[in-house]
Design a protein around this nucleic acid. Structure first.
Length: 894
RNA sequence: GGGUGGUUAGCUCAGUGGUAGAGCGCCUCGUUUACACCGAGGAUGUCGGGGGUUCGAAACCCUCACCGCCCA
């Protein structure tokens, strides 16, 4: 028996599956209520998600119209790498953007969420080079043109995996406007802005120390270098001979062959007499000067440092200032060359060991510290230790641009949310070094500079043709250069396109704080420049990172990463979205665990079941809701709570407070609607007649509005439920709920609060008495007064029926007394325990209130409302104590 | 080294001056015709330590400890 009973619902699911899958082939609803669809007995996300997304695409709901008269609302997606797949961080980022876009669309905006991808220079080139390496080839075997063709081929075949995954998540992006940073249009934008910057003398070429990755063989910008603690060594080496000698401290002994000087602080008394003298550089036996420079920290090591201009950024500065020689003694692979020593040909780390060994043999090592933990730069893409390298590169002169970018935030043209993160922005943008934009790669926008036979330099804009015989610079631009143009290049700039006119400047930029500098700041820099001060977006909404359940950073090496696709398979996209949105407090990281997503799935199921129940009980949206004043208090209460919820959720979402908005929705739906309203109204529905009809319409209203309100967070399930319930075509373009304070009643809240107190106390009493939840118990209410019209509801939720005989036990809740016929002795021990505990709580509360009221300082200085509140608390707790004491006394003494 | 955020229930986190909260977890009971992906009830915190301001502090100030992040 039990088995077959369990088997039944499963079969029902299977039947429904077929029906749901047929959905997308059926003609779209025209709003005719006659084609309401029956809901499956249980919620199976996999059955509804793909068909619904298909339906949305076919209907073109996500396609924005540049000719629309509606006000625009635009978000450009942070373009994911073409090599990337959807990770949990994208899922968060996209969920938040989709929530905003869907809400604004429902609010009547012409909402455009523009999707696309980034060509991701180094990352993509690495992928294809790895494939070649598997065949024993390098990119040089193919040559530039063939290699780039190969990358394009790879992009067409394997790139953009993430785009399909975005559909799983429900992203309501406008696929007709999908962009790629290497598209023709976007490339034109790159050429245009490069030329403009060059003409404005904001781009220049120079030989500088840059960050060099000896594995990727390219220059990197400052932020593409990640500093982390490495275990190195710290040695003190004696330079010089018997006449002049000085001990220098270094972590990079291998570069000493490139030393041009030794530097000390000008005020350092230890070395006063040595400044200006020359000292013998060991191993290469060259005489180098001892100079004085403010940059030297006298506290560090011996207070004397070697100056290796070609291999250290600080040393480069000093060398420039003092006109010191800068011999280059390493090649692009970080292998020692041209030092004229036996170390030539050695890798830098090998050379370090050998050099120290040699110095030790010569008795020049004064002290050694190993391991010496210090911060070392690593290539963001391959983790190779970065090598400072003197080379010719292209730079953006950022000072004037950065000033403007800082001012835009300072004067409020751009708002950073949460504003606590603004200082971080200023800190960076106000201290930004010139931006190295050339990369020694092949995949990317080739720098539009052409060199003539006699050293002429010509920069070509989109419409320019280089003079014959000129050769283009082989380098490409930093990927962030083109993504920095994203908010306008994607809309057609530099053309005066309809999209640009309608949708630019964009509205909100939603992204993780981790790419504030990489991407966001660059868009502001470049955006303000091309538009003469128009900010590319008015708000930057920053969210945090997704971490593991213990709040630890996710990483492959830790093995604590999670797969959003797996979660969607298991719990549904809505569950994943809701979990992420519910954890998204502005600018702060969130932890995530599989159980949390399971919890959201449970919430979705709850909503599904509640909706089915409501529909089954005749909830509807036919005609108008009866006038608010004419409704019973329970109906007034749920509408009041609905209105409060609508108002809060709307405000919170507008302020990017996703977590709080979700929290409010969760509790309204689960606690207020399911646990209380539906339970309290069961008696009304069962009672039939006009009263039932009125309440059914109220319930319909609540369900209709709630589903609308939840749609941005949980688009699939709400769409399925709403269309089924109302017969409407879609929630995607349905109107957003509006709060209306006329639909509120504080009095109804007080009444329901009393009903809740009564119910809870009765349930507690039953529980303590060991009475099964399902068992009906005889009891009468005394003193219900204004609550008497809800007696049937109370009886329903408390499962008590009227008694005619004598009562054997009673409890008091407020002014109401409930007399029970427990037909036999009640559990006196349990009851005494319960009452004693209540008494203790009440006494404690009364004491706190009393102490306050007897405190002269409190009475004199506390605001009158607070005093009043405490007075009421004293009255209430005193009454409670009296009542509990009486109940205790009435208990049989065994 | 310079900034900066944090330390609240077993875990992850809300809570910016008036009786400590949520989700998950935990304990007890339960096949109430929406839902066991559920329901009912329950337990759990001298809000990191110390000092101060205040009638009143988790919240404001000082200080110490620890953790994290950004930048060098």
């Amino acid at each position: 028996m039990a088995q077959s009973a369990r088997a039944r619902p499963r079969r029902a699911i299977r039947v429904q599956k077929r029906r749901a899958l047929n959905l997308d082939s059926s003609p779209m609803s025209d709003g005719n209520k006659s084609i309401k669809k029956e809901l499956a007995a249980s919620f199976t996300p996999a059955d509804i998600e793909a068909p619904l997304y298909q339906k949305w695409l076919l209907a073109g709901y996500f396609t924005a119209d540049s000719k629309s008269t509606k006000p625009p609302f635009t978000i450009v997606i942070p373009p994911p790498n073409v090599t990337g797949s959807l990770h949990i961080g994208h899922a968060l980022d996209h969920t938040l953007q989709d929530v905003l876009i869907r809400m604004k669309r429902m609010k009547g905006f012409e909402a455009l969420w523009l999707p696309g991808m980034d060509h991701a220079g180094i990352a993509t080139q690495n992928v294809v080079e790895k494939q070649l390496a598997a065949k024993g080839l390098s990119r040089h075997d193919l040559g530039r043109e063939a290699f780039v063709a190969k990358v394009w081929e790879w992009k067409e075949e394997s790139g953009g995996l993430i785009l399909d995954q975005m559909k799983r998540l429900g992203d309501s992006v406008d696929w007709s406007r999908e962009r790629f940073t290497m598209d023709a249009g976007l490339s034109t934008a790159v050429l245009e802005i490069f030329k403009r910057l060059y003409d404005a003398e904001l781009i220049y070429r120079a030989e500088r120390i840059i960050n060099w990755c000896p594995r990727c063989l390219t220059a990197l910008s400052d932020i593409e270098v990640e500093h982390s603690d490495d275990s190195g060594e710290f040695v003190q080496v004696r330079y010089g001979d018997d006449e002049v000698s000085i001990v220098v401290a270094t972590t990079r002994a291998e570069t000493m062959m490139g030393d041009g000087a030794v530097a000390v602080h000008p005020d350092d008394p230890r070395y006063k007499d040595l400044v200006g003298k020359k000292v013998l550089l060991p191993l290469v036996n060259r005489m180098i000067p001892i100079i004085a420079d403010e940059l030297v920290d006298p506290e560090f090591g011996t207070g004397a440092v070697k100056v290796t201009g070609a291999h250290d950024p600080n040393d480069f500065e000093m060398a420039m200032r003092h006109g010191i020689e800068m011999p280059v003694i390493m090649n692009e692979h970080a292998v020692m060359v041209n030092s004229g020593t036996r170390f030539d040909g050695m890798d830098r780390f090998e050379a370090r060991k050998e050099v120290v060994e040699e110095l030790r043999k010569l008795g020049r090592i004064v002290s050694e510290k190993r391991p010496y933990i210090h911060a070392v730069g690593h290539c963001q893409r391959c983790d190779t230790t970065v090598e400072p390298r003197l080379s010719m590169q292209w730079f953006v002169k950022v000072a004037p641009l950065a000033k403007a970018a800082g001012d835009a935030v300072r004067d409020g043209r751009i708002k950073i949310e949460p504003e606590e993160l603004a200082p971080r922005y200023f800190d960076w943008i106000d201290n930004m070094h010139d931006w190295c934009i050339s990369r020694q790669l092949w995949w990317g926008h080739q720098i539009p500079v052409f060199y003539g036979p006699n050293g002429e330099v010509v920069v070509c804009g989109p419409d320019d043709v280089p003079p014959a015989g000129y050769v283009q610079d082989p380098d490409v631009l930093d990927t962030w250069f083109s993504s920095g143009l994203w908010p306008f290049s994607t809309l057609g700039w530099p053309e005066k396109s309809g999209d640009l006119a309608k949708f630019f400047p964009t509205s909100v930029l939603v992204t993780g704080y981790d790419i504030l500098f990489f991407w966001v700041a660059r868009m502001v820099l470049l955006g303000l420049f091309v538009t003469d001060g128009v900010a590319p977006f008015h708000t930057i909404a920053l969210h945090g990172l997704v971490r593991d359940r213990f709040g630890k950073k996710m990483s492959k090496s830790r093995g604590n990463t999670v797969d959003p696709i797996e979660f969607m398979d298991k719990y549904g996209s809505d569950a994943l979205r809701f979990t992420l949105a519910r954890g998204a407090n502005p600018g702060t990281d969130q932890a995530i665990a599989e159980e949390w997503i399971g919890g959201s799935r449970n919430f979705a199921t709850k909503l599904w079941n509640a909706s089915r129940f409501a529909i089954m009980n005749g909830a509807n949206i036919d005609g108008e809701v009866a006038p608010f004043e004419s409704l019973n208090s329970i109906d007034q209460w749920i509408l009041t709570r609905l209105d409060e919820t609508v108002e809060s959720v709307d405000q919170l979402l507008e302020q990017f407070e996703f977590a709080k908005a979700c929290e409010i929705i969760y509790h309204f739906a689960w606690d207020d609607l399911c646990d209380w309203y539906l339970e309290l109204s069961k008696a009304t529905f069962a009672g039939g007649g006009d009263k039932a009809e009125i309440s059914k319409r109220v319930l319909g209203q609540v369900l209709d509005q709630l589903l609308r309100l939840m749609h941005p967070m949980m688009p699939f399930i709400t769409e399925e439920l709403w269309c089924s319930f109302t017969g409407g075509e879609t929630l995607v373009t349905a109107s957003w709920p509006k709060s209306d304070s006329a639909n509120r009643s504080e009095a109804s809240k007080l009444i329901v609060e009393q009903l809740q107190d009564l119910t809870t106390e009765i349930r507690r009493f039953r529980n303590d008495q060991g009475i099964k939840t399902s068992a009906k118990v005889g009891a009468n209410f005394i003193g219900l007064d204004s609550l008497s019209e809800f007696e049937a509801s109370l009886r329903q939720v408390c499962r008590i029926e009227p008694i005619t005989g004598s009562a054997s036990a009673a409890i008091e809740v407020g002014k109401v007394k409930i007399e029970f016929d427990l037909t036999g002795a009640i559990d006196v021990v349990a009851e005494r325990a319960r009452l004693t505990k209540d008494l203790a709580t009440a006494e404690k509360d009364r004491t706190t209130a009393k102490v306050k009221l007897e405190n002269e300082g409190f009475m004199a200085k506390a605001p009158i409302e607070v005093v009043q509140e405490i007075r009421e608390r004293l009255t209430q707790t005193s009454a409670d104590i009296e009542s509990i004491t009486a109940q205790l006394a009435a208990l049989p003494t065994k």
